[in-house]
Design a protein around this nucleic acid. Structure first.
Lengths: 242, 242
DNA sequence: CGGTCGATTGACACCTTTCAATACGGGTGG
DNA sequence: CCACCCGTATTGAAAGGTGTCAATCGACCG
């Protein structure tokens, strides 16, 4: 029993730009089903040319790529509402893998219908490009962080980012968000060793800037954290939902 | 006196996907002029919402962003044929700045015409998305390099990449390409210090893997370099020209 | 209750950064 | 024509942030 787009719980979130009736109807035709996957399961593999594209409806995951020597770079964390498979749809090949971290529910779309976005729904095609451009924008930030900031600043930046994204989805309760990843994931996202990541997290805890323990992330004073880490706070932009 | 798209010298390059007569005519209408700028001049600034978009016709530049503390992260190098301002066109704001390194000639497009791509030229809109997705793909690679590879591997990766891009444009002569950037630019692209970048370049020279002196980059054996640095060689994909 | 996984810590090694100084070529003004 | 200045490229030495190695601890599980 799959959720109709008209009843999609995500659409009601403030983070997303409202869709027209027409758009909703189109998405309903585009959607071919729903998929529930277990924690740790791969969704898309780097280099694959999947016939299916997804939108995360529930749960969290991560995008990453693996080098020859086995080292892993986490590129981004997947939140509800994220579109998965844009590179496969446009370039014909994923540049990175996507794995589920928690149990996830995905809306499944048929890639062969993809061209319809451009041919008959220019607004939706524009949204797709918007998402790609935003992802590029984010990766630029991430690159600047990994390349230029210290471990302390980098981890602050990442926690701040993640907290804000979760908060924008209404996932925060009393300044606390559930954050189901492991320290290894954060380390791999920032190009830091696991040990040093752990020690830096302790520092943030001791300085009362950010507490991340047992899958719960608490940041009581966003501005204090931003200032200590020399980061400019910015409000997350409203985004289209696909 | 501005070049007509029908006479565009770039279109003849193998790197670019051939355009239909129709597309060329459309681009000609979209193009509003040509711009020549001096070395070191900014083309677009981070945060700006330029009414003009560009395609590099001649010359090289670089995309970069600057942190609060003044440190700079170079995101990518601009080659002829690159589209400049996609983020401004789609997101309404650039996430990074673009500067000219050499003297450059740019095709100028009017951003207000941008929506026409989506409304009336779905193939061109798709190309635009393709470019955004490819940029995202590249930044993922760069992030993995900066985050996971050693200085030696990172610099090898960058030189290899740059050499291949220039070669694909037919800018290589006898295994040598002109590469007008400074060591500081490469250092800022890889999150390395200038001094260490310099010493690593010397190492590559001594090991006969890559020579970059006086603005000329020579790589006699691509595969040897790729192997030493544990990099997988891949052929540059054909790309649309806008 | 042994086994596995993630989180923690302490000690030590080392890749990079920072600091300093020299060299070299181009541009400018006397 | 030459002294002087400035940006870039080079090098050597020392300082330091991060990585690697190893061991402990708690939670969960068959």
């Amino acid at each position: 029993m799959s959720t109709k787009c008209s009843n999609c719980p995500l659409r009601r979130k403030d983070l997303f730009i409202p869709m027209s009736q027409d758009d909703v109807a189109f998405m309903d035709r585009f959607k071919v089903g729903e998929l529930v996957i277990d924690p740790g399961t791969p969704i898309l593999m780097e280099g694959s040319n999947s016939p299916q594209l997804y939108t995360a409806l529930h749960g969290m995951g991560l995008r990453h790529k693996t080098l020859q020597n086995g080292q892993r770079q986490v590129l981004n964390f997947v939140f509800p509402g994220d579109f998965i498979g844009l590179q496969a749809g446009i370039l014909g090949e994923m540049g990175h893998s996507v794995d589920a971290t928690t149990r996830m529910t995905l809306c499944v779309f048929d890639r062969s219908e993809f061209w319809n976005f451009f041919k008959h729904h220019p607004e939706r095609a524009f949204d797709l490009t918007w998402l790609a451009a935003m992802e590029e924008h984010f990766l630029g930030d991430a690159l600047a962080t990994v390349g230029q900031r210290t471990a302390f600043q980098a981890i602050s930046w990442a926690l701040l980012r993640l907290f804000q994204r979760a908060d924008a989805l209404g996932l925060a309760q009393n300044g606390v968000v559930r954050f189901p990843f492991r320290q290894r994931d954060l380390a791999d996202a920032l190009g830091l060793s696991l040990v040093h990541t752990n020690k830096t997290l302790r520092q943030l805890r001791e300085r009362q800037l950010a507490h991340w323990v047992n899958g719960a992330l608490t940041i009581s004073d966003l501005e204090a954290l931003a200032e200590q880490a020399e980061i400019t706070l910015e409000d997350p932009a409203k985004r289209p939902l696909i």
